[in-house]
Amino acid sequence: PKDQAKKEIEKALRNGDEEKAKRLAKKYGISDDDWKELKKRVS
């Protein structure tokens, strides 16, 4: 599910692991808009 994916990506971003977050986003098909939203929430 997308919500689970977003949680994992957000966690990776919080850990400062943007490479992992990007890989997860690609793997789960997270859209650019969702990606920006996640980045905003974390920063």
Score class of each variant (00 low, 15 high):
Asp32Arg: 07
Ala25Met: 04
Gln4Asn: 11
Lys7Ser: 10
Glu37Ile: 05
Glu10Lys: 04
Leu24Asn: 01
Leu13Pro: 00
Ser31Asp: 05
Asp34Gly: 03
Glu18Phe: 06
Val42Asp: 02
Gly29Ser: 07
Ser43Glu: 15
Arg23Met: 14
Leu13Phe: 04
Ser31Phe: 02
Ala5Phe: 13
Ala25Trp: 03
Lys2Leu: 15
Lys40Ala: 13
Asp17Cys: 08
Ile9Val: 10
Pro1Ser: 14
Lys11Tyr: 11
Asp3Arg: 08
Gln4Asp: 13
Pro1Gly: 13
Asn15Ile: 10
Glu19Gln: 11
Lys7Asn: 11
Lys40Phe: 12
Ala25Ser: 04
Ser43Arg: 08
Lys2Met: 14
Arg23Glu: 12
Ile9Pro: 00
Asp32Lys: 09
Glu19Tyr: 08
Gly16Gln: 05
Asp34Lys: 02
Glu37Gly: 02
Lys22Met: 13
Ile9Phe: 01
Trp35Tyr: 15
Leu38Cys: 03
Lys6Asn: 08
Glu18Gln: 05
Lys6Ile: 15
Pro1Met: 13
Glu19Ile: 10
Lys26Arg: 10
Lys11Ser: 11
Leu24Trp: 03
Pro1Thr: 12
Glu18Ala: 05
Asp32His: 08
Lys11Gly: 08
Pro1Val: 12
Ala5Leu: 10
Asp3Met: 08
Arg14Ile: 06
Glu19Arg: 11
Ala12Lys: 02
Leu24Asp: 02
Leu24Ala: 02
Asp34Met: 05
Leu13Val: 02
Val42Gly: 04
Ser43His: 14
Pro1Leu: 14
Glu10Trp: 08
Lys11Met: 14
Ile9Tyr: 01
Glu8Val: 07
Gly29Thr: 04
Arg41Thr: 15
Gly29Asp: 09
Ala21Thr: 01
Lys11Cys: 12
Asp3Trp: 11
Asp33Val: 06
Ile30Tyr: 06
Gln4Thr: 11
Ala5Gly: 08
Lys2Gly: 14
Ala5Cys: 02
Lys11Arg: 13
Arg14Met: 06
Ser31Tyr: 02
Lys22Asp: 04
Arg23Trp: 12
Ile9Thr: 02
Lys40Arg: 13
Ala21Asp: 00
Lys2Asn: 14
Ile9Ser: 00
Lys27Glu: 12
Ser43Phe: 15
Lys39Val: 15
Asp34Glu: 15
Ser31Gln: 04
Asp32Asn: 08
Ile9Gln: 00
Ala21Val: 02
Leu38Ser: 02
Lys26Glu: 12
Lys20Arg: 12
Arg23Phe: 13
Arg14Glu: 04
Glu19Thr: 09
Asp17Thr: 03
Ala21Ser: 03
Gly29Glu: 08
Ser43Tyr: 15
Ala21Trp: 01
Gly29Tyr: 05
Glu8Trp: 11
Ala12Gln: 04
Ala12Leu: 15
Leu24Met: 07
Asp17Tyr: 14
Lys20Gly: 13
Glu19Asn: 10
Asn15Gly: 10
Asp3Lys: 08
Asp32Phe: 09
Leu13Glu: 00
Ala12Phe: 09
Glu10Val: 12
Ala21Phe: 00
Glu8Leu: 12
Ser43Pro: 12
Lys11Trp: 12
Lys36Ile: 13
Lys22His: 09
Ala25Ile: 02
Leu13Gln: 01
Lys39Pro: 02
Trp35Thr: 01
Asp32Gln: 08
Asp32Thr: 05
Ser31Pro: 03
Lys2Pro: 12
Asp33Trp: 04
Lys27Gln: 12
Asn15Asp: 14
Arg41Val: 15
Lys26Ala: 10
Lys11Asp: 14
Asp32Gly: 07
Val42Phe: 11
Glu18Lys: 04
Leu13Thr: 01
Gln4Val: 11
Trp35Arg: 01
Glu10Ile: 15
Leu38Ile: 15
Lys2Gln: 14
Ile30Gly: 00
Ile30Ala: 01
Lys39Trp: 07
Lys22Cys: 06
Ala12Tyr: 11
Glu8Gly: 03
Lys27Asp: 09
Glu19Ala: 12
Glu18Thr: 06
Leu13Arg: 00
Arg23Pro: 00
Ala12Met: 11
Arg23Ser: 11
Lys27Ile: 12
Lys6Gln: 10
Lys7Leu: 13
Lys27Ala: 10
Lys2Val: 13
Lys11Phe: 11
Asp33Tyr: 05
Tyr28Val: 03
Asp32Ser: 07
Arg23Gly: 09
Lys7Met: 13
Ser43Gln: 15
Ser31Val: 03
Glu10Leu: 15
Gln4Glu: 13
Lys6Ser: 09
Lys36His: 12
Asp34Val: 07
Asp34Ile: 05
Lys40Leu: 11
Arg23Tyr: 13
Val42Ala: 10
Asn15Phe: 09
Gln4Tyr: 12
Leu24Pro: 00
Val42Tyr: 09
Pro1Tyr: 10
Ser43Cys: 07
Arg14Pro: 00
Ala21Lys: 00
Arg14Lys: 07
Glu8Ala: 10
Glu19Asp: 10
Asn15Trp: 08
Ser43Ile: 10
Asp17Lys: 06
Ile30Cys: 05
Arg14His: 05
Glu8Lys: 07
Gly29Trp: 03
Asp34Gln: 06
Lys39Ala: 06
Lys26Val: 13
Gln4His: 12
Asp33Glu: 14
Tyr28Cys: 03
Ala21Tyr: 01
Lys20Met: 11
Asn15Ser: 12
Arg14Trp: 06
Glu19Phe: 08
Lys39Asn: 06
Leu13Gly: 00
Pro1Gln: 12
Lys40Glu: 15
Leu24Thr: 02
Lys27Trp: 12
Lys20Thr: 12
Lys36Ser: 07
Glu18Gly: 04
Lys2Arg: 11
Asp34Tyr: 03
Arg41Tyr: 13
Gly16Ile: 02
Arg41Met: 15
Glu10Phe: 10
Glu18Cys: 05
Ala21Asn: 00
Ala25Glu: 00
Tyr28Thr: 02
Glu37Gln: 05
Glu8Asn: 06
Lys40Pro: 02
Leu24His: 02
Lys22Gly: 05
Leu38Thr: 02
Leu24Phe: 03
Ser43Leu: 14
Ile30Met: 12
Arg41Ser: 15
Trp35Lys: 01
Glu37Met: 05
Lys27Thr: 08
Lys40Asn: 15
Glu37Ala: 07
Asp33Met: 06
Ala12Ser: 05
Gln4Trp: 13
Lys40Gln: 12
Lys39Ile: 15
Glu37Trp: 04
Asp3Gly: 09
Ala5Glu: 14
Ala21Glu: 00
Asp33Phe: 05
Pro1Asn: 14
Lys22Ile: 13
Lys27Cys: 06
Lys6Pro: 03
Asp32Met: 06
Glu37Ser: 04
Lys22Leu: 15
Gly16Val: 02
Arg41Glu: 14
Lys27His: 11
Asp3Cys: 09
Glu8Phe: 06
Asp3Ile: 08
Glu18Pro: 04
Lys22Tyr: 14
Gln4Arg: 12
Leu38Gly: 01
Ile9Lys: 00
Glu8Gln: 09
Asp33His: 10
Lys6Thr: 14
Lys40Thr: 08
Gly16Trp: 04
Asp17His: 11
Glu37Asp: 06
Val42Arg: 01
Gln4Gly: 10
Ala21Gln: 01
Arg14Tyr: 05
Ser31Ala: 04
Gly29Pro: 01
Lys7His: 10
Lys36Tyr: 12
Asp3Pro: 07
Gln4Lys: 11
Ser31Met: 03
Ile9Asn: 00
Glu19Trp: 08
Tyr28Ser: 03
Leu24Cys: 02
Asp3Thr: 09
Gly16Glu: 03
Leu24Ser: 01
Lys26Leu: 12
Asp32Cys: 06
Lys6Arg: 10
Lys2Ser: 15
Lys20Gln: 11
Lys39Met: 11
Ala5Val: 11
Lys40Ile: 10
Lys7Arg: 13
Arg41Lys: 15
Asp33Pro: 04
Asp17Pro: 02
Asn15Tyr: 08
Lys6Ala: 10
Ala5Trp: 13
Leu38Asp: 01
Lys2Glu: 13
Asn15Thr: 09
Glu19His: 08
Lys40Gly: 07
Lys39Tyr: 10
Arg14Gly: 03
Arg14Ala: 06
Lys6Asp: 05
Ala5Ser: 06
Gly29Arg: 07
Lys7Ala: 13
Asp3Gln: 08
Lys36Asp: 15
Glu37Phe: 03
Ala21His: 00
Ala25Pro: 00
Lys36Cys: 10
Lys36Trp: 14
Asp34Arg: 02
Lys6Trp: 15
Glu37Arg: 05
Gln4Leu: 12
Glu10Cys: 07
Lys7Asp: 11
Asp3Glu: 13
Lys2Tyr: 14
Lys27Val: 09
Asn15Val: 09
Lys26His: 10
Lys2Ile: 14
Lys11His: 13
Tyr28Ile: 04
Glu10His: 04
Lys26Asp: 10
Asp34Pro: 00
Glu18Asp: 07
Lys27Gly: 04
Ile30Ser: 01
Asp34Phe: 03
Gly16Met: 05
Ala25Gln: 06
Pro1Ile: 12
Ala25Lys: 11
Lys7Glu: 12
Leu38Lys: 01
Ser43Lys: 09
Lys39Thr: 07
Ile9Glu: 00
Lys6Phe: 15
Lys20Phe: 15
Asp34Cys: 05
Lys39Cys: 02
Val42Cys: 07
Pro1Ala: 12
Asn15Met: 13
Arg23Thr: 10
Glu37Thr: 04
Lys7Trp: 13
Leu13Asn: 00
Asp33Gln: 10
Lys26Gln: 11
Pro1Arg: 10
Glu18Arg: 04
Gly29Cys: 05
Lys11Leu: 13
Leu38Asn: 01
Lys26Ser: 09
Gly16Ser: 04
Glu19Val: 11
Glu10Met: 15
Leu38Ala: 02
Glu19Leu: 10
Trp35Asn: 01
Trp35His: 01
Ala5Asn: 07
